[in-house]
Design a protein around this nucleic acid. Structure first.
Lengths: 219, 219
DNA sequence: AAAGCGCAGTGACAATGTCACACAGGTGCA
DNA sequence: TGCACCTGTGTGACATTGTCACTGCGCTTT
């Protein structure tokens, strides 16, 4: 077991609950691995130690939208909720990068909820953040303009001075729940204004200030 | 305290937790009362005994969308999550009808989570259902056609043989996160096919079968 | 009756999504 | 080298949905 996993375990299952720790397994997910599918029953509590799981919904016609990501030290709300309410997954999860996760079997999860205030706090805090993300997503999708949302996404992706983003138009569209053609046109418009440069499978962010201003708009 | 409230309390705080019951208050919310606003901090756990609270998001331009409802014997996910993760409300809640609710102060909530497995199960089950609703809502909004969504809504509202629905076009639009004009046009189209009758502030559902077929479509 | 208000109808237009293609840059292979 | 093939992108025409600016209708208040 990795040291990061051990630290997390010790935090969530403090002294007195050592027996629970032993029943938690660590797994490694390769890139692109599906963690859970829509309609799957839910038997374990999943906890990402290191990596990233993208949670998305797919439409019949091939369109898709990313709901949120579960990153280092976070857990998946859907898993949590389904585990207790005994419903099946309403979305699917895919490992975006090589990911290390802890698998907590349902009985251990149940017991830990009762016995560890720390564990409860962790589970609920995660719930709150994910739920907030989700509501924000609904708001964006229903009321937001696509140019503003795309600008926001580009700003997020180019954080920390990264100016060249390796991503296809289709991936951007999936992220926003839009269509590739729409994204292509918007990017062309951005490029026309000199805000970005477009290459095959890559976007170069040039006018951070202009994009940022657009991203800050209410729409 | 109402008898319904007492029954709920006894279920969630079983024998041994009588002291917690005493610290829970019952409140009555008049129609239209705002229960919580966007940005409000969250200090109590709210539990609807009888009535209905609509949880919605408002846009700057006046458009709005209903995320879900909290009905008899249910609790609000947002409240639950915010309570623990100490975030502020990302949406707002309004009592749709006169509503009776239990107010559980945060310390009582915290203690009950640790001491009552029944309470935990209740809280999590509610979380799961509301989260499922929310994901379904995202899916509908992003991928769904407005005619299908409207047909679904009409079928839901006319359940149990109620054929005449007292509702305005604006209210239907708010429910679906669409615009009044769009709904008016769709209804006109439905009316043209003889599926519904339109009156001022009321819709009469005539062709249940046809609407139902449309409602079942994937889009 | 007149004014005011909430509700609904409508046409023109803007924004976004859909469809059916064309084309360009790689990669692998004959 | 040249060709088939795949993925990613560009584009025009069109459908659907949202926005805006009005109009009119029915009801209540003045």
């Amino acid at each position: 077991m990795s040291s990061a996993a051990r630290i997390l375990l010790e935090r969530l299952f403090p002294a007195g609950l050592e027996d629970l720790r032993a029943r938690v397994e660590e797994i490694h997910l390769p890139v692109g691995q599906t963690v859970f599918r829509r309609g799957d029953p839910c038997r374990n509590y999943l906890l990402v130690v290191q990596g990233s799981v993208r949670v998305q919904v797919l439409a019949a016609n091939g369109r898709e939208i990313t709901l949120y990501r579960v990153c280092d030290g976070q857990s998946c709300v859907i898993t949590t909720s389904c585990l207790i309410s005994v419903e099946s997954y309403p979305a699917e999860g895919v490992a975006e990068v090589e990911t290390t996760a802890l698998v907590v079997p349902q009985p251990v999860f149940d017991q830990a909820l009762g016995d560890s205030a720390e564990f409860r706090r962790f589970v609920f805090a995660n719930q709150g953040q994910r739920l907030g993300d989700l509501i924000q997503r609904v708001e964006d999708v229903v009321f937001g303009r696509i140019d503003v949302r795309l600008a926001r996404l580009l700003m997020t992706l180019s954080e920390q001075g990264v100016k060249s983003i390796a991503i296809t138009h289709q991936q951007l569209a999936s992220e926003l729940g839009s269509a590739r053609e729409v994204i292509s046109r918007q990017l062309k418009q951005f490029a026309g204004r000199g805000w970005v440069g477009i290459g095959r499978g890559a976007i170069e962010v040039k006018a951070t200030a202009a994009l940022d201003e657009l991203a800050r708009q209410s729409g």
